Computed example of a mutant assay.
Amino acid sequence: MRRVHPEFAFQARELAEQIEGILGDPPDRKNYKAMTQALVTEYANGGGIEDLNMMAFALVDVIDIAEPKTLLADAEDFEFGDPARVFAAVSCPEGEPARMLAAIEENHLELGRQAIVTAFLHKHPRMWDDDDTSLDQLAEGDEGDDDEEEGGASEEFTQMFDQEGER
Rank of each mutant, 00 (worst) to 15 (best):
Arg2Ile: 09
Arg3Leu: 08
Arg3Trp: 09
Arg3Cys: 01
Val4His: 04
His5Asn: 12
Pro6Val: 00
Glu7Asn: 05
Glu7Ala: 01
Ala9Asp: 04
Ala9Ile: 02
Ala9Ser: 08
Phe10Pro: 00
Phe10Asn: 12
Phe10Asp: 13
Glu14Ile: 09
Glu14Leu: 14
Leu15Asn: 04
Ala16Ser: 15
Ala16Phe: 08
Glu17Asn: 12
Gln18Leu: 14
Ile19Asn: 01
Ile19Met: 10
Gly21Ile: 07
Gly21Cys: 06
Ile22Ala: 00
Ile22Met: 03
Leu23Phe: 01
Gly24Ile: 05
Gly24Thr: 00
Asp25Glu: 11
Pro27Asp: 08
Pro27Gln: 06
Asp28Ile: 07
Asp28Glu: 07
Tyr32Asn: 01
Thr36Cys: 09
Gln37Pro: 01
Ala38Cys: 03
Ala38Gly: 12
Leu39Asp: 05
Ala44Pro: 04
Gly46Met: 06
Gly48Cys: 02
Glu50Gly: 02
Asp51Glu: 05
Asp51Val: 01
Leu52Met: 05
Asn53Tyr: 06
Ala56Val: 11
Ala56Gly: 08
Phe57Asn: 08
Val60Lys: 02
Val60Trp: 06
Val60Glu: 07
Val62Arg: 05
Val62His: 13
Ile63Val: 11
Ile63Arg: 00
Asp64Met: 10
Ala66Phe: 00
Glu67His: 04
Glu67Asp: 15
Pro68Gln: 02
Glu76Gly: 14
Glu76Thr: 09
Asp77Ile: 00
Glu79Arg: 13
Glu79His: 13
Gly81Thr: 09
Pro83Thr: 05
Pro83Glu: 10
Ala84Phe: 15
Ala84Trp: 11
Ala84Leu: 15
Ala88Leu: 08
Cys92Asp: 03
Glu94Gly: 02
Pro97Leu: 05
Pro97Phe: 08
Ala98Trp: 11
Arg99Asp: 09
Met100Pro: 11
Met100Thr: 04
Leu101His: 00
Leu101Arg: 02
Ala102Tyr: 01
Ile104His: 10
Ile104Ser: 10
Ile104Glu: 08
Glu105Cys: 03
Glu106Leu: 11
Leu109His: 14
Leu109Lys: 15
Leu109Gly: 11
Leu111Asn: 12
Leu111Lys: 09
Gly112Glu: 00
Gln114Lys: 15
Ala115Arg: 09
Ile116Arg: 04
Ile116Gln: 00
Val117Glu: 07
Val117Trp: 09
Val117Leu: 05
Thr118Met: 10
Thr118Asp: 11
Phe120Tyr: 15
Leu121Ser: 04
Lys123Phe: 04
Lys123Val: 01
Trp128Gln: 10
Trp128Thr: 15
Asp129Glu: 15
Asp129Lys: 15
Asp130His: 06
Asp130Lys: 10
Asp131Ile: 13
Thr133Ala: 11
Asp136Thr: 10
Asp136Ile: 12
Ala139Trp: 02
Ala139Phe: 06
Glu140Pro: 07
Asp142Met: 13
Asp146Gln: 15
Asp146Met: 13
Asp147Tyr: 11
Glu148Tyr: 03
Glu148Pro: 01
Glu149Val: 12
Ala153Glu: 15
Gln159Lys: 14
Met160Asn: 03
Met160Trp: 10
Met160Phe: 13
Gln163Arg: 14
Gln163Ala: 13
Glu164Asp: 09
Glu164Thr: 07
Gly165Asp: 10
